[in-house]
Simulated assay, not measured.
Amino acid sequence: MKELTPKQKKFCQEYLKDFNATRAYKVAYSAKKDITARTNASKLLTNTNIQNYLSDVMNETKAKDILDIDGVLDNLSRLAIGEPREKVFKRIDYKGKKPKVVYDNVTTVTPEDQDQLKALELLGKYYKIFTDKVETQTDITVNIDPGDYDG
């Protein structure tokens, strides 16, 4: 893959913020007119090197966002013991073309009892604490006739 120019890299970084190619082009290349920015941004997005760069960054970001087993177990454990955590409530204004976050309100919340119980249940299943054991008793009679195996 051919190395991107600094302006191309800037375009990609801006584009990944909101996927607005026109805005990203105007920032990276200091374009004034929307029509120029839109046309040139469209051309840039067809560039194989830029497509590869964007794809790599998005796949890398996606992989970081996925919890591994340790992350899942850690979150379940914190929930099971009732550890308080911060929760963000956003007030969003839907006026205009694009919704805007008016303010964030951060509150500390404690898990509800049913949430803790479910987390404990899931952890118990993972560690196989709740496996059912079934005992059976059978009488089997095996008759072997040596004549059946003559060659």
Rank of each mutant, 00 (worst) to 15 (best):
A80C: 02
M58P: 04
Y53P: 05
N20I: 04
L76T: 01
V88E: 06
E112Q: 10
V27H: 05
S55H: 11
Y29Q: 03
Y94T: 06
N59T: 13
V102I: 00
K62P: 04
A63S: 08
K100L: 06
T22Y: 05
L76N: 11
V72L: 08
Q114V: 12
K90M: 13
N59Y: 06
I81K: 15
N59F: 09
K26N: 00
E86P: 08
R78C: 06
E83R: 03
D115Y: 06
Y29G: 00
N105M: 09
F89C: 09
D56E: 13
D68F: 06
K98A: 10
D68H: 07
S55Y: 12
T46F: 11
A119W: 05
S42E: 12
A63D: 03
L45C: 07
G71L: 01
N105P: 03
D56C: 05
T46R: 15
E86R: 14
K26W: 09
T48H: 13
T39N: 13
K100M: 02
I35S: 15
V72T: 04
I50S: 02
V72S: 05
R78K: 14
S77T: 15
Q114K: 14
D93E: 03
M58K: 15
S77E: 11
E83N: 07
T48F: 13
G96R: 00
V101H: 01
V102G: 09
S30Y: 11
A63N: 09
N105E: 14
T36K: 09
I50P: 01
V109I: 04
Y103L: 12
L117R: 14
K98E: 14
K100V: 09
A119S: 00
D74N: 15
D68I: 03
T108N: 08
E86S: 13
P84K: 12
V109N: 03
Y103S: 09
P111R: 06
R78D: 12
K64Y: 03
I69A: 08
V101L: 01
Y53L: 04
D113K: 13
K62A: 11
N75S: 15
Y53R: 06
Q13Y: 10
K26T: 07
L44V: 03
A31P: 11
D34T: 10
I69K: 13
Y94N: 11
A41Q: 05
S55A: 01
D113M: 13
L67I: 06
V109A: 02
Y94G: 05
N20K: 02
